[in-house]
Design a protein around this nucleic acid. Sequence first.
DNA 1: CATCGTTTGTTGACATGTCAATCATGCACG
DNA 2: CGTGCATGATTGACATGTCAACAAACGATG
Lengths: 174, 174
Amino acid sequence: MSTMEKGKPTVSSDTRWLSEHEQEVWRALRELLWGFESAMDRQLIRDSELSAVEYSVLAALSEADDGVLRARDLARQLDWERSRLSHLLKRMETKGLVTRAECPSDLRGYNIMMTKAGRDAIVQAAPGHVSFVRENVFDPLTDEEREALLSAATKIQASIRDAGLWQNPGGQKG
Amino acid sequence: MSTMEKGKPTVSSDTRWLSEHEQEVWRALRELLWGFESAMDRQLIRDSELSAVEYSVLAALSEADDGVLRARDLARQLDWERSRLSHLLKRMETKGLVTRAECPSDLRGYNIMMTKAGRDAIVQAAPGHVSFVRENVFDPLTDEEREALLSAATKIQASIRDAGLWQNPGGQKG
DNA sequence: CATCGTTTGTTGACATGTCAATCATGCACG
DNA sequence: CGTGCATGATTGACATGTCAACAAACGATG
């Protein structure tokens, strides 16, 4: 049991269980959902000094004009919870990838800045990471599949947001 | 920077950076990759006594004829690492969801069995979980998108496996 | 039967995430 | 200018995952 009733009809209800074909789709999606992130992480750790989440943080910082962002903005841009970012930044500071400095305009805030080591690390990691994405996402797909994937991902995300189950409630919705 | 060179051309190389449209696809995929699992977990924890990983284990067990599986087979079926399963089973045993018993035919092995509480928990959780999947995956997508999603997920996974970056090397390949 | 590599499973150290609590500051409003 | 709620960030407890090391039993081989 998991998504089909099967076995003893212990469960009655009007649940619309999944057909066999739907289960096949669901299984493929679940495997991808779990495996992709972890494969991406593995590639980065193997070929660079960065994990996938560290890469995300440094990527966001390097997109900022001066390489500095307030923790608040970093969290918004990444669509992460505060505490998640905070925990990670502490570890990254220990590793010398970023520094934190009090924000002069708002004493509650902190400015996060990439260090030289952080910049070096992402510059070194970027080509391998991009290759991973290209070789495992774009190269294997037809144009149609790629567009359908975009469309499907967008719709699924919107649906979850509407259901109020997205991580940071407030992405869209009215 | 993240997948496009941008900024100073610090990186030379022949990396095939992502076009803007590709970045849009990539961003949507990444968000889905992270957010879906976590939303699913949230729904389960909200509406039942189970987390998503606990649900997976119980689902696999309830698919077995007598509700019993060796840890080895459970790990294979879920495509999980041993230690991952072992850690989780320890917690689940503490919570009374499963029990472990030595395997008579192979003294290294352990038979994992669902308890009554475990069965009750998944029976209670299943309808809500299936509804989550149906409402957020199948209902929002057209038939075409659903098929393209299956096809894309399968191809991406195969590509990662070929690259030797899948969690458990040995899924397919020769 | 003794040996050695393989399989199975556990464990510990640590990276990572969630949630709830905490604390300080910012800000609106009377 | 206080009061009180909203915002920004940290922290601690805990759930979860990875990897590497370990231990025990299996199994092929001599």
